[in-house]
Structure formats: C-alpha cells, structure tokens
Design a protein around this nucleic acid. Structure first.
Lengths: 225, 225
DNA sequence: CCAAAAGTGTTCCGTCTACACCCATGG
DNA sequence: CCATGGGTGTAGACGGAACACTTTTGG
C-alpha cells in the first residue's frame, strides 16, 4: 500500500529560528557562530532537524526550547527554503520560524552556554547559507503582523510604559512616530490598560505602566498601529 | 564531514498547488479526485514530490507544468505543512504554492486527461488531508497580494474590460464594489492603459479593452485596489 | 534651578464613501 | 424602441498627519 512512495526521495528537513528581542530601544535577533561543519565559525541562526515523530511546528518549538528554555512562545512560520545547494553538506529543506520573546525572560547564562548573541537587526553580519534571506522575510512578516495584531507585547515585559511601546514600534518600522498621535491611538484601545504602577527607572518624573489585557481584546479585537 | 547529518531522519517532501482561475465571474480552483492510495477517490489538490536534484520552487513549477503545460506562471509559496499524520500513508511534509492562471490558457483537453475540475472557491468540497487549510491560507495570502500588487492580471486575458477587472476583485474580496469609485482608482494608475480595441461580446454598446503595462508600472510601482 | 522624560488637543488636509443618471447599440 | 451593460462627477464623512507647551522630580 505504501509502495507508491518508494519511487521518491527523502530529504532532511530542518527548522531555523529567527528570535526577535527588544532591548536598548533596538530590535535584535539571536544569532550564534556555527560550531559544526559545514559553515563552522560562520554566523548563523539557531536551528535543528525535524524528527519523524514530531510535526514541523513542534520541531520549531523544541528547538527554541533547547536554546532558551522557554515554552509557549509566540512563533509563526516564515516559509520553506528549498534551494538544492542551500546547505553545502547535504540536501536540506529548512522551514524558518520567527519568535518574539522578552529579552528579560532569557537568562544571560544561556548566551554563553550556547554561544549566541543579540545583534541589532539593522546591523546584521553575513549569515550562513540563506539565513539572511530568512531574516529579511521574517522581518517583513513580523512588521506586517505587528501592524494588525497585538503581538508586539511579546517583546516587552508584562508591564511597560507607553514610551517603551512607542520605541518598539519605531524600531520595527524604522521611522519615528509622533508621540501625541501614538498615544491617541493607544487610548482608543481599551485592552491596553493603565495600571496604578509607576516606572521610576527611566525618568525622574516617572511613567505610568501599562498592561495588555487579552480578555478585553478578545471581546472586541480591534488593533491597529 | 557529512557524518553530522546521519543522526537525523529524512522525510518525504512534496508540493501542492492551489491553482486559481477566474471564470464566469467566479474565483475557482483546480482540483481532482485522487487516483492513488491513500485517499483514493477523495478530492485533492494537485501535487508531487520534491526530487533531490531540484529546489522546492522548481518542483512546484514542474508539478504545475505537468498539469497545465504552462511555464512562467505567477506562483508564490503559501508555507510548509508538517503535521506528523497529515498523510496517512507516510510521513510527508508538504510545501503549498498558489498559482494564478488565465483559464483560457488552459486547454480543456487537460481537464479530462488529468481528471481535474474548476471548482468555485466559495463552494469547496472536503479535500484530502489538510488541503482545505492550504486553500484557506492561500486565499488569504492571495487576497492580501491582490490589494497591493498588480498580480490579478494573471487571472485575466491580456486584454480585459474594467467590468471584468471589477468582477475579479469582487470575487476575490467577496463584496461588491462601487463602479464609479473603482474606475476612479483605475484612472489614477497609468499602467492600466486603455487600448483602442472594443469588446463587443458582453454588451451591445461595447466596452473598452484595457491592458496592464508592466514597463510603466516598474517606473513607478504604485498599486492599490 | 535645571535637565530630562512624561503627558496632553486641535486644526487641517487628503482620502474614502455614498450616490443616480445618460449613453450606445443589437435585436 | 427597449433592454442591457458602459460610462461618468460631486459632496460629505472620516481618519491620519502636523504641530508646542506644561508637568514632575532627582540631582
């Protein structure tokens, strides 16, 4: 019954993760030096192979977990990359995913353990194979998503100031935003709610801390930024 | 040097095509009954396996060519579908692509040869495996693309009337468009140029035939519909 | 007292939407 | 002469963009 398949060829399938973080008012990506051949020493995304008994999505989750120790991370597929020569060692089709994490949730210890670094997306080195293409496409999709869905909060702490949120959107879109217009838009979204807490770290006066309320959002999902 | 890969498992990689056509003022997709196990007799997208010596994109082109005899078709990747159980016979990761073709370029003979049919997207039967998901995602991406890039012309003949173009957009977006507002927008896009030719088939009065001028578009790519 | 970031409204302009009637022609 | 689809303009609503000053407080 399965003989039909045998005429065809199997291929290695891998996943590669574009892990976005927001720190120091900059959008960053986690990359590391490859410690395996081919491409040893080159900058590279973090990836892994898909096993026969797990879905491709699960492989991406697992790979991210291995690197960060984080579960239930916001992750979306970028697409499949399937040039014949994309991996110089063997034929490998890779499915890229982007993830949005809060840099503070990421233990610094892991940076050393896995020899990875946060690098500003505007300043990416040449990466292994087609990884630069993956990053480009991931950024495009992510920017798109950030405009129409409340996913940016995954890049911020639970409580954040409006200035932080604005700087995040400025970093993602690569252009400055008018503060008053930005806050006007925020005020219309009830699910971005002000708490009584005040952040005193970034300014003398102190800034109100806000929170994304998912329940309220789900009742009337209307997000635009 | 390649021993690194051997710890991992290879997987069948296939492509599936969501082939859009526009006919009788309806957006349609080409589907057929599977003539192989598993899933014999079920409605299904047309697909094929990726060979070791061709890129995934090339496999999609080839598959489309096998079915339609057409080359250089507008095609875009939808994404990878990788559930473990998506193909009941074997583990197969499939990369879906959507294509936009002019129904008139497709020889009717081929419908019989390959036992495929044009089916209205609004009225899709249950398809094999996760193919309905693929179609859903493909439509979403395609609708998105049609709004911001002049790709809809691939679904029309070289020369078309504004009413045809409007009906196409109505079918894609599932809502009626005001004729005057639509034509106002068209008039602002110089690359949709009026020819001297008149279509007398659809009305007694006759309708001006238009053409998409790619050269003019490339000089100042500003498309919005 | 001053530097540094937080916070706050109004006006203007351009874009989108709603809307109805005459035209040309084949039969 | 009439049925059928082709073709045309305007006014009002709405949303987005531009724009500057006061407040608070730690040092």
């Amino acid at each position: 019954m399965t003989s039909f398949y045998f005429e065809h060829q199997k291929i290695y399938v891998s996943v590669d993760c574009i892990i976005f973080g927001f720190d120091d008012n900059q959008l960053k990506i986690l990359i590391g030096k490859r410690h395996m051949d081919p491409g040893r020493g080159e900058w590279s995304l973090y990836g892994g192979f898909v096993r026969n008994d797990e879905s491709v999505d699960d492989a991406a989750d697992r790979t991210l977990y291995e690197l960060t120790g984080l579960r239930n991370v916001y992750m979306r597929q970028v697409g499949a990359f399937g040039s014949v020569e994309r991996d110089p060692g063997e034929r490998v089709v890779s499915v890229a995913y982007y993830a949005l994490i809060n840099v503070k949730d990421y233990e610094e210890q892991l940076l050393k353990t896995h020899q990875v670094e946060w690098v500003n997306v505007e300043n990416m080195p040449k990466l292994f194979s087609d990884h630069n293409d993956m990053v480009r496409q991931a950024r495009k999709l992510m920017r798109q998503k950030m405009r129409t869905e409340p996913v940016g909060f995954n890049l911020l702490p639970e409580l954040f100031t409006l200035t932080q949120l604005q700087k995040l959107y400025e970093a993602v879109n690569g252009e400055e935003i008018d503060k008053r217009n930005f806050r006007k838009r925020i005020k219309e979204m009830d699910f971005i709610e002000k708490t009584e807490k005040i952040d005193k770290l970034t300014s003398r006066r102190g800034a109100a801390l806000y929170r994304f309320n998912k329940k309220i959002y789900n009742e009337e999902p209307n997000f635009k930024l």
